[in-house]
Nucleic acid binder design. Structure first.
Lengths: 229, 229, 229, 229
DNA sequence: GATGAATGAGGGTTCATTCAT
DNA sequence: AATGAATGAACCCTCATTCAT
């Protein structure tokens, strides 16, 4: 992991934008700018004000544009950065080789909780980016990359699933589809009802309540779809 | 149903805003303003321009503000109007007294298709309103009302469901929860992948493909959750 | 001359820009905006500040852009306006049917003096527009129109000239070319040495000194090129 | 001519600016900065960007301001430098002791062609400096110096002219004035119609066409003003 | 000397909102 | 009721200039 940071730069730069100046900045200031930008963009691309960002990050207006050129490129960078964080801190950590897909779901949920605790704004920001109404803004392929990474992940988990666990008389492929939809629905419901921005202990508690609820659902589904032992 | 129109006014006015002037407008002009506003707000609250709205509706700038006071109240009205349309054209038409919840789901899907065909922008607009990043804008409780109407609807459907149809060894309440999540997830997935704005025959065909897919899922679930006949 | 004003609108609008809103403005405010703009653009397109223009014209920033859309279109309008003024107040007034081209030159010089006295900024502004370094700005063909109007004028004057006045042994066509160049050079020299912005009596005096000098040159040239009577 | 370079420094420094640091720079880098600046200032003082200059010259932003202090002083230096080049490469080379002023004009035209071929940007830059709309910028007296050098030159040429060549009945002083104006007008017309920036063979050809045209005019004028041989 | 990150006033432009008519 | 000219604060962005290294 020596070149951890460098490899991140490469990935973020890969597809076009030139964020070199910014990426070689000292970490503290870079962090301030990233946090300020993510926070401001939570309210939508159009409504976000670069004035607010520079005020929050305590830098001059000119500097922000020295690094990013335009508001749009700043947003583009933030999306790439968030996607890259998701990959390193979530996607890459998942063990896809488990026989019980409910175990897989449980594990990913724990990792997702850890991610949200560690980088709360990253997750909220990406959620916002997905629904960003200003479609011209989503140009950069980073979001699509994340979606396909996620799709691959799901496919791999399902590929490693032990289908013999499923109850006789149930088509495992159909069942898996349903299971996928169920947890997608669950995640959406949770995102919709969660007031973002909670941090610290409160967030942790919220999350653990959610995980308890999830555990029950998983158990129920095991009962529905799996053979009785 | 003589007072159809008046009752609508009452509901829309109920919670605060004073849209009396607008609601007593002649229907043709009112329709022009509503359509223009919905269309423009599809691109997001902030990005929507009152200039575009008045141009599309062929009214003067002053008149729009004469009716609604501020852009925010205009948006608020549009949300209420769309919610009210959903209620009248969708929620109220659902027959909750069916024994098989998969039949209920099927029926609601057909009604939803009809709604989308009849008022395409209403549905797209509401979808946008849900994810509107500008949380200060969602103040009006209309969206919450719609959510609770929807929750009540689901509760009623489930209350009328014949639990004896469920397979032994499955907790029907847990199963119902899962079923709800599954179709929520399915709906979300479809919304995400549907390019809005399609109208006419194409839209109809898209919808029918979707319904066919849904039918398969329903059948699979019946196999999973219900007793073999 | 009843439709004097309307025909002006048509000409200025003809080639593209939509300046209708501005042209139907009451004359007093329109004049303020035109004067302020011309004055500010004297220092060059790039250096001119719309802030200064609106301050000088005593209107709001928004109103200027309500009328003209962009700074570039404002400049374009001013060029058209100045060209149109030149046409109406100078080109159209010249009597091209004179036998002695030195009389023609004298007459045009008198008319030019009157123009400069009446619209001092118009002339200075156009001079600046000719040399405007920012070539992308000169897009509108108005300046070219003026040049070709001027060229036509010169051609007509020369066409009506009585060539039999020229001394034997001089090619009248070559002589006419030289005469044209001489007065072009003279005009340029005068423009270069004149501090613009002078108004009132001083300007008048400057002009009359210039005319006296011109008269001498004309007499000399008559002696050079014409037969002795 | 050993102190060629030093004397140049003195002249450029004479009237105020302190360009010592820059003038003692190694020639290669100095050349890069001069060329980059001239090129950029061709588009006008205001539009020229110091960013472009340092990029083209491959030096840092700080260094440019280390040498020149402000953009305005940089421009001032460039004017002085261009004027000095004109003097050394044009004014000083002219032989004023010729009897036929048309020969003098011909000779200066040849020299001017050589200058333009050798330092194309110097000539274009000075032309631009003359018409620079931003009058505050022309403060430095260098341009005036050039003008007076030119005036002296013309005076000397005319002083050496053999007035007995002129036709009887023509006042030679008046004729000379006219001749001066004619070629001033001709030069201006040519500058206006020449698209600058042409280099190499094309420029050479353009020039030679121009010289041919000039020769004809000279012959005509000889016929007009001189005695028949 | 040499660098380029950093500054911030100023630039052109937008747009919800007001108001005289 | 109906108009649309008028407003001005806020927006994104530029760029000559400074300064710590």
């Amino acid at each position: 992991m020596i070149d951890n940071e460098n490899s991140e730069c490469e990935r973020i730069e890969a597809e076009g934008g030139d964020y070199h100046k910014f990426l070689t900045l000292d970490e503290e200031k870079r962090g301030r700018i990233i946090n300020a930008s993510m926070k401001e963009f939570l309210s939508g691309y159009k409504k976000a004000s670069t004035d607010n960002i520079v005020r929050e990050a305590a830098i001059s207006k000119g500097l922000l544009f020295h690094y990013f050129g335009t508001k749009e490129k700043l947003y583009d960078f933030m999306v790439r950065y968030a996607v890259e964080t998701m990959r390193k801190e979530y996607i890459d950590l998942i063990n896809v080789r488990q026989r019980d897909i409910f175990d897989s779901i449980w594990q990913t949920s724990l990792l997702k909780r850890d991610l949200c605790m560690k980088f709360p704004s990253v997750f909220d920001f990406l959620t916002g980016a997905y629904v960003e109404a200003d479609h011209e803004i989503n140009a950069g392929g980073a979001l699509k990359d994340l979606q396909s990474m996620h799709a691959n992940l799901v496919a791999e988990i399902f590929a490693h699933a032990d289908l013999s666990l499923f109850r006789d008389g149930i088509d495992p492929k159909a069942a898996i589809k349903i299971i996928g939809l169920t947890f997608a629905g669950y995640a959406n419901a949770k995102i919709a009802e969660t007031p973002s921005g909670k941090t610290g202990e409160t967030a942790r508690e919220n999350y653990d309540i959610y995980l308890e609820e999830l555990k029950e659902i998983l158990d129920t589904m095991r009962a529905c779809f799996y053979k009785q032992q």
